[in-house]
């Protein structure tokens, strides 16, 4: 029984890790990997089936689908990471503060978070993007504003767990100031579980960004982005389903990759969510 769980964790860690590594590599080297220009419109060959020159065929504008998928990796990954980074830079300090200070500070921060969490996050992002006007930058902003709350709550939980450890009391008794204790002991010890949980979340972020782009709120055509590609191919769902299948599979693969990686890391570190 025990052996089985361990091997499953390793499988999930390595499968996820390689999927993510592959996606990141594709994202970084995207311009060198595309067989043709992802933005080049050629209406003569629109909706053509896969061929040697266009391995996955062309879309409704005659653009190479494979090239658009490859460039889309870049957009999707880059913006997901950016969103994660921005959300972390809000949620980590606030979570640390709430968890460590406790008392009134904690209650104030937590009630703010509860308020944000009370709204369905997708609808809130849609509302904010609707107000600011649809663009990828505004989508990111909306997303970060909504999403930091949940993560700050998790960070607070991690911090409160570490705060009760004996070595924090030892640090206090050796005369460390609260700032020293947070920076020296709590943050480094919280970093690992926080990163693990972040890797679990990034799949969700990517899915949401693609989803909002699909709704027309994120990146705008002709930027190659998986959600936009899904949306573009919607009219052809019945006649040429492969056009929807490719970006859908891409989103699914990378999301699963991140989730497996996060899950594998989480089990290795025995972190409870």
């Amino acid at each position: 029984m025990k052996r089985k769980t361990i091997s499953w964790r390793a499988v999930s860690l390595w499968t996820g890790g390689s999927l993510v590594a592959l996606a990141v590599c594709v994202g970084i080297f995207a311009p060198y990997l595309t067989p043709s220009d992802p933005l080049l419109i050629n209406l003569d060959i629109r909706l053509s089936p896969p061929s040697l020159h266009y391995p996955l065929g062309t879309d409704q504008m005659g653009r190479c689908v494979l090239s658009r998928l490859i460039m889309g990796t870049r957009t999707s990954l880059f913006y997901s990471m950016l969103a994660l980074g921005a959300a972390l830079s809000i949620s980590v300090p606030l979570g640390l503060l709430a968890g460590f200070a406790g008392g009134r500070t904690d209650r104030f921060i937590m009630r703010t978070i509860d308020m944000l969490l009370a709204f369905p996050s997708l609808i809130l992002s849609i509302a904010i993007t609707g107000l600011l006007g649809p663009s990828l930058a505004n989508l990111l902003l909306a997303f970060v504003l909504v999403w930091w709350a949940g993560y700050a709550r998790i960070v607070r939980g991690i911090v409160m767990q570490i705060k009760e450890k004996d070595f924090i009391m030892a640090a206090r008794s050796s005369g460390g100031s609260p700032t020293q204790i947070v920076l020296r002991h709590i943050l480094p010890n919280a970093a690992r579980p926080m990163l693990v949980l972040a890797s679990l979340e990034i799949g969700t972020i990517m899915l949401s960004i693609s989803g909002l782009s699909f709704l027309g709120l994120g990146s705008q055509p002709p930027t190659p982005e998986w959600g936009v590609m899904l949306n573009d191919s919607r009219p052809y769902m019945q006649t040429i389903p492969r056009l929807m299948l490719y970006p859908g599979l891409a989103i699914m693969t990378v999301t699963i990759g991140f989730n497996l990686l996060g899950e594998g890391l989480r089990k290795r570190d025995r972190i409870e969510t």
Binding site: D166, F167, A170, A171, G175, R184
Partner: peptide
Amino acid sequence: SRMQLVFQNSVATFDPLFTIERIVAEPLDN
């Protein structure tokens, strides 16, 4: 600093990410 504690179970009172040098030096760093 004028009153210090030696704990029952010392290992729990050491930050697991710290080397012995950093552990002993912590009061000095404060």
